[in-house]
Amino acid sequence: MLEFEIKDAIGGFIKSDLKEVEIPFDEIESIAYKKGIWGGTVKIEGNSMRTFEEIPESEQGRCELKIKRKDRNEAETSISSARVALSEYKLDKLDE
């Protein structure tokens, strides 16, 4: 489940209510986290160009989420857990 708000690019003011989009593991190819100086970035790659069609600014089956500096540690932990869960899901699918 991804939760997000849309913010104004210039002022950073919130322009939307909190939105939730559920992306099934079947549609996720990979998840990566990159720590940066000012925050971090989560990159999720889907199996199809339609995987992230409900998420603004996603392109060609890829979604990039910016993480604020104060939320980096929590994001890193969450992404690590999500990667383990995705790996386990893919292994289970191979066993079937």
Rank of each mutant, 00 (worst) to 15 (best):
T41K: 10
D8N: 15
Y33G: 01
K34H: 11
I14P: 10
L18K: 14
I10F: 15
I37D: 12
S16K: 08
K43N: 03
M49P: 04
S16G: 11
S58Y: 04
E59Q: 11
E59I: 07
K15T: 09
S30W: 02
K15W: 03
R50M: 08
E59C: 13
G40S: 03
E22M: 14
G46Y: 00
S30T: 04
S16M: 07
E57Y: 09
P56Q: 02
K19R: 12
I28F: 01
I10V: 10
G11T: 07
V21D: 07
E57M: 07
E53I: 07
M49R: 10
A32W: 08
I31M: 10
S48C: 05
D8H: 15
E45Q: 12
K15A: 09
T41I: 03
R50C: 04
G12A: 03
M49I: 05
F13W: 10
L18T: 08
T51V: 04
E29N: 14
E59T: 04
G46L: 00
A32N: 14
Y33V: 00
S30G: 05
I23W: 06
S30V: 01
E29A: 11
S16T: 10
D8A: 11
V21Q: 08
S48R: 09
S58M: 05
F52S: 01
E45V: 14
E59F: 08
D8T: 11
L18M: 11
I44H: 02
F13M: 12
A32K: 13
I55H: 06
I14M: 09
S58E: 04
G36M: 15
E29W: 10
K15P: 02
P24K: 12
G40I: 00
F25D: 05
I28A: 00
E22L: 15
I37S: 15
P56N: 03
G11S: 08
E57T: 04
E29D: 13
I23D: 02
D8R: 08
V42I: 12
F25N: 05
G11I: 05
Y33T: 01
V42Q: 02
I31H: 04
P24Q: 12
V21Y: 06
N47Q: 13
I23P: 02
D17S: 14
W38Y: 12
I10M: 12
L18I: 11
D26E: 09
M49C: 08
K19S: 09
P56G: 03
D26N: 10
K19Q: 10
K19N: 06
K34S: 11
A9D: 14
E53L: 13
E29P: 02
A32D: 13
E57R: 10
D26G: 02
G11K: 09
E20K: 13
K15L: 10
V42F: 04
I28R: 01
K34F: 12
A32G: 07
T41Q: 08
E45F: 07
T51L: 06
F25R: 04
F25S: 05
E29C: 09
K35N: 05
